Amino acid sequence: MRILFTIAALFFLANTNLVYSQCREFAKNDCKPLLENYIHDGNYNGIVLNVDEDVELHKAFFKGQKYRLVVCKEDFLPSIHFKLLNSDFEVLYDNKDSGYNNKYDFELEESQTIIISMKFMTENKVYDKSMNGCVVVLFGLEMK
């Protein structure tokens, strides 16, 4: 019984590392080029997300710095609706207003923590609730 449990645990860890590795490669190869002339901040924010899940990412941004936010997903997944919110949950940007664009350039008037809220756009189509795939959020800095 102990051997069976050990084998199952090793299988789970191997699959988890494989999925994480595949998502990381996707971020490097497919998403990072979308930063274009912005310098990647070095942080990888990727997750294997199910179609029926919502996710939030909290990140500090600094006054006077120009940023590019890229939200990237595997091609077979539905579009992603994302919003930038301040700490009072006021919407600073909603990609719905720009045709669900996957990148956004911005500069803040004051340093603050921003919440990036994301969910898949599934209203108009029926998707298998168990479908999942890699979603990556990258941040770039404009160098002056």
Rank of each mutant, 00 (worst) to 15 (best):
M1W: 01
R2H: 05
I3M: 08
L4A: 12
F5K: 04
T6C: 11
I7G: 01
I7P: 06
A9V: 11
A9I: 14
F11I: 08
F12W: 09
F12S: 15
L13N: 06
A14L: 15
A14T: 13
N15M: 13
N17Q: 12
N17H: 08
N17W: 11
L18H: 15
V19P: 00
S21D: 09
S21A: 12
S21P: 06
C23P: 08
R24P: 00
R24I: 00
F26D: 03
A27F: 08
K28I: 10
N29R: 14
D30M: 07
C31P: 06
K32D: 08
L34A: 13
L34W: 09
L34R: 15
L35D: 12
L35I: 09
N37M: 13
N37W: 01
Y38S: 03
I39C: 00
H40T: 01
G42S: 11
Y44S: 01
Y44F: 09
Y44L: 15
G46D: 07
I47F: 13
L49F: 03
L49G: 02
V51Y: 00
V51N: 05
D54W: 00
E56D: 09
L57Q: 06
L57I: 11
L57P: 04
H58L: 10
F61R: 01
F62L: 10
G64M: 05
Q65C: 06
Q65F: 09
K66W: 03
K66N: 06
K66Y: 02
Y67E: 10
R68H: 05
L69S: 12
V70F: 06
V70R: 10
V70N: 07
V71E: 05
C72H: 02
K73Q: 08
D75M: 08
L77N: 05
P78M: 08
P78E: 04
S79R: 14
F82W: 15
K83Y: 04
K83C: 02
L84M: 14
L85N: 14
N86H: 11
S87D: 07
F89Q: 15
F89I: 03
E90Q: 14
E90A: 10
Y93L: 03
Y93D: 07
K96R: 14
D97W: 05
G99W: 02
Y100K: 11
N101Q: 11
N102K: 08
K103Q: 14
D105N: 10
F106G: 03
F106H: 05
F106N: 01
E107Q: 13
E109Y: 03
Q112C: 05
T113S: 14
I114N: 02
I114G: 00
I115C: 07
I115E: 04
I116S: 05
S117Y: 04
S117H: 12
E123G: 04
E123R: 14
E123S: 15
N124V: 06
N124C: 07
V126R: 12
V126N: 01
Y127F: 15
Y127K: 03
D128R: 13
S130G: 00
M131G: 00
N132M: 07
G133C: 03
G133W: 04
C134W: 11
V135F: 00
V135D: 02
V135M: 01
V137F: 03
V137W: 02
V137H: 00
L138T: 00
G140D: 01
G140A: 04
L141K: 07
L141A: 00
L141H: 13
M143L: 05
M143I: 11
